[in-house]
Simulated assay, not measured.
Amino acid sequence: MSGRHVPAVTGLRGQGELGRIIVDWTPLPWAVVVDHYAVYGTPGTGDVAVEPANLLTKTVYPRFVHRGLGGDGATWTYRVVAVDAAGSRSKPSQPLTASSQESVTASGTPLAVVGEYDGKGLEFALSPGGYSQYPATFPNGIDFRHGTDDAGTGWSYLHPGPADGWAGRRTHTFRLRVDLDAVPAGEVWLALWLIDSHASIPGSAVLDINGTTVDRLVFEGGATRGSTVGDSTLPGSPLRPSYVERQLPPGLLLAGENVLTLTKDDGSWIAYDAIGLFTMS
């Protein structure tokens, strides 16, 4: 239908974050009864054709979070069309090009990694749906030595918290032991990727390195589906991945054994994609 009476969307802005691009725009005046906004996009810096093959989402909000873009840093171009209650469509907005941030998993050098940064948690123990076996399999949490232990048997895909009745409603600690030949040169970063987390109470965890408390890591709410689904890359996946990457204070890592400890003493479970330490020169 003609879009003569539906104003074009203006004010598109893009904010690149790790693994995603947030696109928002100026909402149409209240006098226009908007049924939804249609967001179109294609990879790269060229223009985007407003056609069904490029439709990314329909939303009633003047905002779209484009997720699942990975860690390499992705560039996309977007246009938005407003559709009113009668089905009339506006002209497409002006194009907007934006880029997501590059992950340290792409730009850094790995010191130790458990899992694969691939949007999947299928390589971990008990995945994709064996969480009920966690209390018997890991009664004392996780104590994992990099280079010796296997993620398929030694690292649980879910890290429960005290809100989880199936895991005893208590604190759960995961330890990663890393042996280093020498003190790393340059910056050291933690890269913790999740394929999903509990939607309403993902909570937080305390990060310790060699007995020194570094930070309390706060997790984003997910889709509460990662307890039974292990792949966020499939078309139409219900999972909601999130990412935590932060630089570690200098001087914490030593030559010899190092122990990274994540203590989940708040909220419910998180579902791992991968966890690792990286150096940046």
Rank of each mutant, 00 (worst) to 15 (best):
G11R: 06
L12D: 02
G14K: 10
Q15S: 12
G16K: 13
E17W: 00
G19R: 11
R20Y: 03
R20L: 03
R20S: 09
I21E: 11
I21N: 12
I21K: 13
V23P: 00
V23D: 02
V23E: 02
V23W: 01
V23N: 07
W25H: 10
W25Y: 14
T26W: 01
T26Y: 05
L28I: 01
P29D: 02
P29N: 06
P29Q: 09
W30H: 09
W30Y: 00
A31S: 15
A31C: 00
V33K: 15
D35V: 00
H36L: 01
H36M: 02
Y37Q: 06
Y37N: 13
G41H: 03
G41P: 05
G44M: 04
T45V: 07
G46T: 02
D47K: 08
V48L: 11
E51W: 00
P52S: 15
N54L: 00
N54T: 10
L55Y: 08
L55I: 03
T57L: 11
T57V: 15
K58E: 14
K58A: 10
R63K: 10
F64V: 10
G68D: 13
L69F: 04
L69Q: 10
L69A: 07
G70I: 03
D72F: 01
T75S: 08
T75C: 07
W76V: 03
W76H: 14
V80F: 08
V80K: 15
V80G: 11
V81C: 11
V81K: 15
A82L: 12
A82W: 08
V83K: 14
V83T: 14
V83F: 07
A85V: 07
A86Y: 06
P92W: 10
S93T: 03
P95G: 08
P95M: 11
T97H: 09
S103Y: 07
V104A: 02
V104C: 01
S107N: 11
S107P: 04
S107L: 14
T109P: 01
A112T: 06
V113Q: 08
V114L: 06
V114D: 05
D118I: 01
G119F: 04
K120I: 05
G121V: 02
